[in-house]
């Protein structure tokens, strides 16, 4: 019995030490991970709306309490055409981007994630305040690297400047990488639908 107790005690000690070690490392890295994700997000938003580096932005997300991330002080402009909804549109994350200096709305970004036969694609669709598409960016992907690169280079820029209207939007019909591009167009369609639904209210 004593030897069994010793066996169990050794496992207990190893388990406890590794638990403590992992806790400490997690404690050190968690804020860095959080900060990195924040920076990444802001980087993507700046890229979509071509915001210069010295201009600071704040954003309001439909999933998280915005006060946790960046405090918004002052009043929002009254004549903004959208209402910040309580819940996200189905399958998308809706984020409102504001200029920090005067709290004016810059645009809306929709983030969608779709699974296809090659893996997953995460796409950010930015829509300007005048209703045109600002940019479409692939933020994360487990799809074939070459296809994604090709799409980023050739097939995302045609979206820029198009009016965000389900009837008018044009997609490229002939691309080599059908699955990846199909996922991108699905998310763009969803985002436009969500945008029109939101702005009608």
């Amino acid at each position: 019995m004593l030897s069994k107790l010793k066996t169990a005690l050794v496992l207990l000690l190893i388990g406890a030490v590794s638990g403590g070690l992992i806790y400490i490392v997690n404690d050190i890295t968690a804020p860095i991970i959080f900060e990195n994700e924040l920076q990444r997000k802001i980087g993507f938003y700046s890229e979509i709306f071509e915001i210069p580096e010295d201009q600071e932005i704040i954003y309001k997300d439909c999933t998280t309490d915005p006060n946790d991330l960046v405090p918004i002080d002052g009043q929002l402009e009254e004549d903004v055409t959208f209402e910040v909804r309580d819940s996200c549109p189905e399958g998308l994350t809706e984020t409102f981007i504001y200029d920090k200096a005067d709290n004016s709305l810059i645009g809306v970004v929709y983030f969608g994630n779709e699974k296809n036969s090659y893996g997953e694609v995460g796409v950010l669709v930015g829509i300007n305040i005048d209703g045109t598409i600002a940019n479409v960016v692939i933020s994360s992907s487990t799809n074939t690297v070459n296809f994604v690169k090709k799409i980023e280079k050739e097939f995302l820029s045609p979206f820029m400047g198009q009016l965000a209207d389900p009837q008018l939007i044009e997609f490229d019909s002939a691309t080599g990488a059908t699955y990846t591009y199909g996922s991108v167009t699905d998310i763009v369609n969803d985002a436009i639908a969500a945008y029109n639904e939101g702005s009608d209210e």
Partner: peptide, 28 residues
Amino acid sequence: VIPNDVRTPAYIVIIATFVTIVGMVSKA
């Protein structure tokens, strides 16, 4: 120190600890 009966679980715990740590560090 490690008794023979629980050799494999003990090694796995040690390895998994370091794997979890590199996972966190690479994420950061």
